[in-house]
Simulated assay, not measured.
Amino acid sequence: MHKAFFGDRERDFSLTPHLIPELEKLTGKEITAIVESTRSMGLAEMVHTVRLGLIGAGEHPKEAAELVQTYLNAHPLGELHLLALDVLTDLWVGPEESVFREATDDEKVDAERRVNRAARSAVQEAAATGDLSAAINAGAA
């Protein structure tokens, strides 16, 4: 089970094995192809992964669809991508063991600032050089 803030509060996500056929049907890819191509996931794959992760964690299917539709545009695409990656990682390798302490709020804010600075730097470099792949690759890392 993966916990993440999505929409208006922290929610549980779990892409359970019984939902894999639905994800494969919706994306037209087998689960191994989805997992192997996570760095280049399309928007539909991200949306379906997050929606099915909500359902697998107990959210009603209609509510899960409404949440994804409502909050898709409220979050940067990179956040949706990372959430989809976390959901797929939990499916593929199992949930992360709690062997590390939870980061403090200050540590979380600091980490978020570092990520945002790196992303801004990559975008500025891309603007200066015309190399958009640098910004895209930095955002996917």
Rank of each mutant, 00 (worst) to 15 (best):
R9Q: 14
R9K: 15
R9I: 00
E10T: 06
E10R: 09
E10P: 00
S14T: 00
S14R: 06
L15C: 07
L15H: 05
T16M: 04
T16G: 01
L19F: 11
L19A: 10
I20K: 04
L23K: 10
E24S: 12
E24T: 09
K25H: 14
G28P: 12
G28A: 11
G28Y: 09
E30I: 08
I31A: 10
T32H: 13
T32K: 13
V35Q: 09
S37I: 04
T38W: 14
R39W: 07
M41K: 07
M41T: 09
H48T: 04
V50Y: 05
R51I: 00
L52K: 08
L52S: 07
L52I: 04
G53S: 07
L54C: 06
L54P: 01
I55Y: 01
G56V: 01
A57S: 15
E59S: 08
H60W: 05
H60G: 09
K62M: 09
K62V: 13
K62P: 01
K62F: 08
E63F: 09
A64T: 02
A65N: 12
E66H: 07
E66S: 05
E66Q: 12
V68G: 04
Q69V: 02
Y71V: 03
P76V: 07
G78S: 14
E79I: 07
L80A: 06
L80G: 02
L80M: 14
L80C: 05
L82Y: 13
L83R: 04
D86M: 05
D86I: 00
V87S: 04
L88F: 08
L88Q: 06
W92E: 13
V93W: 08
G94F: 07
P95K: 14
E96L: 10
